[in-house]
């Protein structure tokens, strides 16, 4: 058990005074292990992204615990939790998440620059990653010059920059054509085979054939997929 959530719930208020609220995720358990690719399917609004954010140290659960090994992530202070996220988690959020004033290469480099200065091997690693995701020729382009699929591939390369041991991908194949979908899923599968714990939240049934474990999110509850 590498990264796990025990009985996590997330409650959001609909009104500021808290008189009205709803559960996005309710009493859910999940564990993701090194060397496995876990896929969570589910309709929009079923709570997949909320669960990923809780696992990624971005959203504290209302109830329950998220553990990395034996450590409760949300008992860490913000500095330690942020450093943990930078060193151990490669997150691929939904949609376009480019830093718009940086080039594609600088975007990919950015996780390595948050807690340190650019090292000798950083640029060659970033370029290698861009080559792996098939957009090496766009290294000097600005994000607004890229298509949706290219932006998604850039986000994947960026997530892999610090060689994280946990990869959380939210709809990684959204907006992508069949060929790019295959490329991205292969890439995530390779990361799992390298030893990372990979979790993807997706609508894309294609992901099923790449996953070791398949789960379904239904109205905030996680259950084994049929």
């Amino acid at each position: 058990m590498f990264l796990s959530a025990e009985k996590v719930s997330k409650k959001f208020n609909r009104t500021k005074d808290g008189a009205s609220w709803f559960y996005a995720v309710r009493e859910t358990d999940i564990s993701i292990d090194q060397g496995t690719l876990t896929a969570i399917f589910g309709k929009s609004g079923s709570g997949k992204t909320t669960l990923l954010n809780m696992l990624g140290g971005l959203l504290a659960p209302s109830e329950g615990v998220v553990r990395y090994g034996e450590n409760d992530l949300y008992r860490l202070d913000d500095k330690a939790l942020s450093l943990f996220r930078n060193r151990h988690i490669g997150m691929i959020p939904q949609g376009s998440t480019a830093l718009t004033n940086l080039t594609v290469l600088e975007n990919v480099l950015s996780p390595s620059l948050i807690y340190g200065k650019q090292e000798d091997g950083s640029i060659s690693r970033a370029k290698e990653l861009l080559k792996t995701v098939g957009i090496a020729d766009l290294a000097d382009a600005m994000p607004n010059e890229l298509s949706g699929g290219e932006l998604r591939r850039m986000a994947i390369a960026r997530a892999l920059m610090n060689s994280p041991d946990i990869i959380l991908a939210d709809e990684p194949t959204g907006d992508l054509d069949d060929e790019n979908t295959q490329t991205v899923l292969c890439l995530l599968r390779e990361q799992a085979e390298r030893g990372a714990a990979v979790l993807i939240a997706t609508h894309d049934s294609e992901a099923r054939s790449y996953a070791n474990i398949v789960l379904r999110m239904n109205a905030g509850k996680l259950e084994p997929a049929s």
Binding site: G56, D78, K79, S82, N86, T97, S110, P111, I114, R158
Partner: peptide, 16 residues
């Protein structure tokens, strides 16, 4: 805001 949220995702602390 979204750019700053992305930086949080990448590991930037609130102080940073």
């Amino acid at each position: 805001k979204k750019e700053f949220a992305v930086l949080r995702v990448l590991g930037a602390s609130r102080v940073k």
